[in-house]
Design a protein around this nucleic acid. Sequence first.
DNA 1: GGGGCGGATACGTATAGACATAACAGCACG
DNA 2: CGTGCTGTTATGTCTATACGTATCCGCCCC
Lengths: 242, 242
Amino acid sequence: MNAPLEPPIAPLSLTGRIHRDIQQRIVSGDWPAGTRIPFETELAGQYRCSRMTVNKALSALVQEGLITRRRKAGSFVAEPKVEQAVMEIQDFAMEAARLNLPYHHEILAHSLKRLGVAAARAAGLPHGARVLHVMCRHSIGERPVAFEDRLIALAAVPAAADEQFDLIPPGTWLLRRVPWSQAEHTIRACCADASLARVLDVKPGEACLVLHRRTWHLGKPVTTVDITYAGERQHLVGRFSP
Amino acid sequence: MNAPLEPPIAPLSLTGRIHRDIQQRIVSGDWPAGTRIPFETELAGQYRCSRMTVNKALSALVQEGLITRRRKAGSFVAEPKVEQAVMEIQDFAMEAARLNLPYHHEILAHSLKRLGVAAARAAGLPHGARVLHVMCRHSIGERPVAFEDRLIALAAVPAAADEQFDLIPPGTWLLRRVPWSQAEHTIRACCADASLARVLDVKPGEACLVLHRRTWHLGKPVTTVDITYAGERQHLVGRFSP
DNA sequence: GGGGCGGATACGTATAGACATAACAGCACG
DNA sequence: CGTGCTGTTATGTCTATACGTATCCGCCCC
């Protein structure tokens, strides 16, 4: 069922054509939300194919959230879930490569500790949990672009205790080694205080973007990170379709 | 094929079980990226079902981006596209309902105009295009939560010219009436200047989150909006899985 | 008039079989 | 030695059929 996702150079399969035709009529506004689309049997007649072929196309549209289906009632164009957007979080190294500038990071702090009560609650970890605390600055060219403040739960990632992160930044290291099954993002704005301003080379009081991310694996916390982007030089971008 | 997305209260179909089993092994890290998953015929044997049944489950996994398939070679666990996150943008009215507080909005400005050169470029519209310019404040309870500054291209949405937006805020109105096929988000931080501080009831200089969204329909711009969230009271949250 | 019942309907799921196609592997021939 | 042919294999696609099941709609009876 990946045909409709690929460039339509290859001659589309029948299922793919049905899928594309209906998708076009929906996104073009031809069939607004709530429209009842033809029954499986009707479509099967129109395309001179079996009901299963139509069914595969419609099932794919359900999976994409474009239609909903009810027994006996029929298939209907779904309400657009516009409030969901695919947000692409920047990878600093990639961003630097795109700008043709060198990327580097510096480890500012690196310590093993046990969490106090307040810190444990903030991180969603049990009181006294052993964690690795890493602080790190990312730079593109000569300008700092972000400050990263991260806790890694050693219960979930024991190997992190032996890692210095001097060659690979902690985010990249974790992505490569640890699977994750759930995550949560929070994005907010804050004003840079004196120490943050110094680290990021911005004026004190300048607005910064803070991305807070918590990651779990099979219900157990893996890592908690605050990434503070340097002032108005940085922003997050996302492009998406319904 | 929507079974695996629903709560598993209903007894899962065979296709759904195969789907879930494989999905679990992938997200659990049991089968890391690149692992070849059993052939369709093998799985059909294991589950004592026909190849079509397995095929439907695997097709759904392809659509979700969890696996890739190559003829003759087999099916493989895909590289995780971790940098994609589903970001849920808050709907003010819904947020207010959740807090059991009244929501209301006020139209602060409402004018028909033609775009100057600079404004047209910023909005991605042709110079001289007729637009509706609306500014609006959203409040939950008695506190303002966001300031909305929106341009609506009348070429794409002629009906907007006759709408006062006094009952329905412009964002909601557009969502209900106009289909869209592409959008772009930019999130950045800014410091509130004097007028913004007054509108949002925050201290001048306080950091605010700005969500800039441009929407197209069939390649033609529909609307451009800046939503400025009131200081540190507001933030964006997203929860997601690989 | 209204409430319950049953039939018709449209989707949900699964089967078995068929042929097409891409790709790999091994063999043979130049 | 490498190049091309061919057979095997796994997926891709489609058909025809079957039965389950939720739901709608209209009929009938009270």
